[in-house]
Measured scan of single mutants.
Amino acid sequence: SDEELKKRIEELVRRGNKDEARKLAENANSDEARKWWEKLEQL
Rank of each mutant, 00 (worst) to 15 (best):
A21N: 01
K35V: 06
Q42L: 11
R14L: 09
E11A: 05
N29Q: 12
V13W: 07
K6C: 15
V13F: 12
E41R: 09
R14E: 09
V13G: 02
R34D: 10
E4S: 09
D19V: 10
L24A: 04
S1P: 13
W37F: 14
E32G: 07
L43V: 09
L40N: 01
K23T: 10
A21G: 03
R22Q: 07
R15M: 14
L24Y: 00
G16A: 02
Q42M: 11
E3F: 09
L24Q: 04
N17S: 10
K35R: 13
R8H: 08
A28Y: 05
E38T: 00
D2P: 08
E4I: 08
K39N: 14
S1T: 12
W37G: 01
K35C: 12
A33L: 15
E20Y: 01
R22H: 06
L43A: 11
I9G: 01
V13A: 04
W36P: 01
S30E: 04
V13N: 04
E10A: 06
E38M: 00
K7S: 10
K6A: 07
E38D: 07
L43W: 08
E11Q: 05
W37R: 01
V13C: 11
K6Y: 10
K6M: 14
A25Y: 04
R8S: 06
K6N: 06
G16Y: 00
E3K: 10
S1E: 09
E3I: 11
R8L: 14
D31C: 10
K35L: 07
L43C: 14
N17L: 14
K6G: 04
K23W: 05
D2K: 08
A21Y: 00
K23V: 10
K39F: 13
E4K: 08
L5M: 08
W37N: 01
R15C: 15
K6V: 10
L5E: 02
Q42A: 12
A25W: 04
D19A: 11
N17C: 15
N17W: 01
E11K: 00
R34Q: 12
S30H: 05
E10W: 03
K18N: 10
A25S: 04
A28C: 13
R14K: 13
N27G: 11
K18E: 07
Q42H: 09
D2F: 15
K7M: 08
E20V: 06
N27M: 14
Q42I: 09
L43R: 07
L12S: 03
R34P: 06
R22L: 08
L40I: 10
L40A: 06
S30R: 03
E38S: 00
V13R: 02
N17Y: 05
D19L: 05
A25E: 02
K18Y: 15
W36K: 02
L5K: 02
L5R: 03
A25V: 15
E38R: 00
E20M: 08
D31Y: 00
E20K: 05
E4A: 12
L24G: 02
K39Q: 14
E41T: 15
E41Q: 15
N27W: 05
W36C: 08
L24H: 02
K39I: 14
K39G: 11
R15Q: 14
R15E: 12
N29Y: 08
D19P: 03
L43K: 07
Q42V: 10
K6E: 04
E41H: 08
D2V: 14
L12T: 04
N27T: 13
D31Q: 06
E11R: 01
L40E: 05
K18G: 09
G16L: 01
I9V: 04
E41L: 15
N29W: 08
D2I: 15
L24T: 04
W37C: 08
N29K: 12
N17A: 12
R22W: 04
A21K: 01
W37S: 00
E3P: 10
R15I: 14
I9E: 01
R15G: 13
K18R: 14
N29P: 07
N27K: 10
E3G: 10
A33E: 07
N17I: 06
L43I: 12
W36V: 03
A33H: 06
K6R: 10
R34S: 09
L40D: 02
A25Q: 03
E38Y: 00
D19Q: 09
R8Y: 06
E10T: 06
L43G: 10
L43T: 11
E11L: 00
R14I: 11
V13E: 04
K18V: 15
I9Q: 00
Q42G: 12
W36A: 05
E41D: 11
W36Y: 13
D19S: 09
N17E: 13
E3T: 10
K7I: 08
E20L: 10
L5Q: 02
V13H: 11
L5V: 06
S1Q: 10
R8K: 12
K39L: 14
K35I: 11
I9N: 02
R15Y: 01
G16E: 03
L43Y: 07
L43S: 10
L24V: 09
E11S: 06
E4G: 08
E32I: 09
E26D: 08
G16V: 02
N29H: 10
E4T: 08
D2T: 13
A28H: 06
I9P: 01
E20G: 07
A25C: 14
G16H: 05
S30I: 05
E41A: 14
A25I: 15
E3H: 11
R14S: 11
E26C: 06
D2Q: 10
E26W: 00
R22I: 06
E26F: 02
K18Q: 09
E10F: 01
L5D: 02
D2A: 11
K7Y: 02
V13S: 02
E26G: 03
K35A: 13
S1A: 11
R22M: 07
E3S: 10
E26Q: 07
N29E: 12
R34N: 11
S1V: 14
K35N: 13
L24W: 00
R14W: 00
V13P: 02
A25M: 14
R14Y: 00
A33M: 15
Q42P: 05
I9T: 02
E10D: 07
K18A: 11
R8P: 01
A25D: 01
Q42Y: 06
R34K: 14
R22E: 04
S30Q: 04
A21D: 02
W36N: 05
L24C: 09
S1N: 12
K23E: 11
R15A: 14
W37K: 01
K18W: 15
E3Y: 07
A21V: 03
R34V: 12
V13K: 01
K6Q: 06
E3R: 09
V13I: 14
E32L: 09
K39H: 14
W37I: 13
I9C: 04
A33N: 08
K35Q: 13
A33P: 03
I9W: 02
N29T: 11
K7V: 06
R22F: 04
K39W: 15
K23G: 05
N29F: 09
S30V: 05
K7A: 13
R15N: 14
I9R: 00
A33W: 13
D2N: 11
K35W: 04
R34E: 11
A21L: 10
A28G: 07
E4Q: 11
W36H: 13
K23A: 13
K35E: 15
A25L: 14
E10H: 09
W37Y: 14
L40W: 07
E4N: 11
A25F: 04
N27A: 13
K35G: 13
D31L: 05
A21E: 02
E4M: 10
K7G: 06
E11N: 07
Q42N: 10
L5G: 01
N29I: 10
K7T: 08
E32V: 09
L40M: 12
K6D: 02
E41K: 09
R14V: 08
R14Q: 11
L43H: 08
A25H: 02
E4Y: 07
S1G: 12
A28W: 12
L12M: 08
L43F: 09
V13D: 03
G16T: 02
R15D: 11
G16R: 01
L40Q: 04
Q42C: 09
A21W: 01
E41G: 07
N17H: 14
S30M: 04
S30T: 12
E10N: 05
K39P: 03
D19M: 06
R34C: 10
E10C: 15
D31N: 06
A25R: 01
W37D: 04
E32C: 08
E32K: 06
I9F: 07
V13M: 14
V13Y: 13
A28E: 06
K39T: 13
N17V: 05
L12D: 03
A21S: 02
E26N: 04
L12Q: 05
E10K: 05
E4D: 12
D31T: 08
K7L: 08
E38F: 00
D2M: 15
E3A: 12
R15S: 14
K6L: 14
E11I: 02
N29M: 12
R8V: 12
L40S: 04
S1C: 14
E38K: 00
R15F: 04
R15H: 12
K6P: 01
E41S: 12
L12A: 10
D19E: 13
L5N: 02
Q42K: 13
D31R: 04
A28K: 03
A33Q: 05
W37T: 00
E41Y: 04
W36M: 06
L12I: 04
L43Q: 11
S1I: 14
